[in-house]
Amino acid sequence: MAESLQPRVRTRRQVVRIVVVLAAAVVALINIAPVLWGVATSVRPPERIFAFPPSFLVGDLTTEHYAQVLEGTFTRNLANSVLYSGVATLAAVVLGAIAAYAFDRFRFPLRRQLFGVIVACIPLSMGAAVLVIPNYLYFAALGLLDTPVILPLLYLGYNLPMAVWIIKGAMEGVPTELDEAATLDGASRLRTFFSVVLPLCRPSLGAASIFVFIGSWNEFVAGSVMVNSSEYRPVQVAVYQFISAFGRQWGPLTASAVLALVPILVLVVFFGRYLVAGLMRGAVKG
């Protein structure tokens, strides 16, 4: 085919290619420029942060903002968030997978309605932020305020609907014949689920995990209101602490934001391929 093309057409194609790649590079740069600028700010000496015109050169760098951030309870808050997000993720994937399996394979009363409830919970979870005050009173009545349980529980609830949705999509892609074959071999339902269906859904479990983890990691409102003592505080609230009553401290603020970004970045770099692969199965089937 290519041999038969006129040279001029080939050059034009190459030009188009270069333009597309350049355009993509520019778009990508614009997309991440604010983040890069944040990183740059985090290593600038305080007196150079507000310099105008802004300098794009790498000048005298400093680690003082990082030192200041790490001095306080920040590492503790970081560890809290790892724990909260980890627990929420694990619970969401386990509970979500079991529920998704039932929704996909079983016929039971209220099945449609209950799945409708899960879908309805998506707007509820996103609207929870504006309901801080009643939420506070509600969870206070449950006696859960300022305990290590409250945040993982909330994060689980906020992200569960999405997890069920993703995993169910993947299970639809696993042929039911496989279940039937396993059942014929005498395997129990639970066993079929664990040894046949789940392994085939691994990418989507990975994708769901990343979604839940990121969602939990970045949650802010509940984290700032539902716990009072710094020993239970999650990382985003610790970052926000540098926007104090006495002004935005851009240095420590960006330094802590960068530190808070690192775990997520690691997750996305190493497991990012699951994201697309995990969402693929059943993405086309409704």
Partner: peptide, 18 residues
């Protein structure tokens, strides 16, 4: 217990009720 300066009064009002 260190709080968020811009929301802690509202939180206090709620905490008073609970």
């Amino acid at each position: 217990e260190v709080q968020q300066w811009d929301t802690m009064t509202q939180q206090f009002l709620a905490a008073d009720v609970s």
